[in-house]
């Protein structure tokens, strides 16, 4: 086994000694260790990228509210505002990125098909970032899809060093991981070196530490949806900062250790139990499917 890594420092060393990108290393490692050929792995990833884009387009068509009443139609609203007379001072792309990530979570809430990247609750961030990158750079699906291999390489380091599950590590493990993966993908697609990629991930992940998982009513909708929408922008920010040459003070592997430590020490009420945070606010409690009857 020549291409296996568990940490970012091992990943960087392999990228250097083998003269490969993070995406290529992740692909080589998968083919070396699995039953599928390089071509099969690439075509499955391309298919997954196309399904991600479908999940964005499907979400943008949704006008009805979800079963819980917590979401529906928001991605359309944001997209419409981006093309209106007064888009954000940061530009229409800024708002479109938000709309795309919201759209995936709206598709998810409407029993549509998504690619859990790395989880269903954080499935909007990578598709939004990659689709915006593709549109802005006018790239093909085949080129853009490479970013998912970069994302998978960084995701592997987080998954092995900490976890992805909100029930185990809070929202930082879901949305934080997705941000780090998306930042890595954008950074490498924009020509970043493996070192830039790892710093982009470190910068993205460290700003999500402590984020609790407090889904209102137990549904994967609020605050999950808006976390995806706004943290997609965060991934773009981290990638840009890393590409400028700025470095994370704390190396990525240590940020992952911090993620694990914070996750382990986080009280259970903040880990997908809907017993704390926004879920336990008076408004949040109104959306519980089996809330205790308060009427006489």
């Amino acid at each position: 086994m020549q291409y296996q890594f568990r940490t970012a420092s091992q990943l960087l060393e392999l990228c250097q000694t083998q003269s490969v990108s993070v995406a290529e290393l992740a692909l080589l490692g998968e083919v070396e260790n699995g039953p599928q050929s390089r071509e099969e792995t690439e075509s499955r990833m391309l298919e997954y990228y196309r399904r991600m884009k479908e999940s964005v387009q499907k979400g943008l068509q949704i006008t009805e509210r979800s079963r819980s009443g917590l979401s529906g139609g928001d991605s359309r609203r944001v997209l419409a505002h981006s093309t209106g007379p007064h888009p954000s001072a940061l530009g229409a792309t800024f708002e479109r990125s938000i709309a795309y990530a919201l759209a995936v979570l709206e598709t998810n809430a409407a029993f549509g098909r998504i690619i859990a990247t790395p989880t269903a609750g954080s499935a909007g961030i990578c598709p939004a970032c990659l689709l915006i990158w593709q549109e802005e750079r006018q790239a093909s699906d085949e080129t853009t899809m490479r970013g998912l291999f970069t994302a998978a390489g960084i995701g592997r380091v987080i998954g092995l060093g900490a976890c992805f599950s909100g029930a185990q590590g809070g929202c930082q493990a879901e949305v934080g991981s997705a941000c780090a993966m998306a930042a890595a993908a954008i950074c490498e697609l924009d020509g970043g070196s493996p070192e830039d990629v790892v710093h982009a991930s470190a910068l993205a992940l460290q700003n999500t530490l402590g984020l609790i998982c407090d889904p209102i009513g137990g549904y994967v909708e609020a605050p999950c949806m808006m976390r995806n929408g706004l943290f997609g922008l965060h991934a773009f920010g981290a990638a840009a900062v890393a590409l400028s040459g700025v470095r994370s003070i704390v190396p990525f592997d240590e940020v992952v250790s911090a993620l694990r430590e914070v996750g382990n020490k986080m009280p259970r009420i903040y880990k997908e139990t809907s017993q704390g945070g926004l879920a336990a606010t008076p408004t949040g409690l109104r959306f519980f499917p089996r809330r205790p009857k308060t009427d006489p």
Binding site: E30, Y48, G112, I114, I115, G121, G155, F164
Partner: peptide, 21 residues
């Protein structure tokens, strides 16, 4: 950990545990 455990599964939402599982 396999690539398509990280990028994936492909699933109908909304919840990997309550729906896909």
């Amino acid at each position: 950990m396999r690539i398509f455990e990280i990028i994936g599964p492909s699933m109908i939402g909304p919840s990997s545990s309550h729906t896909a599982g």
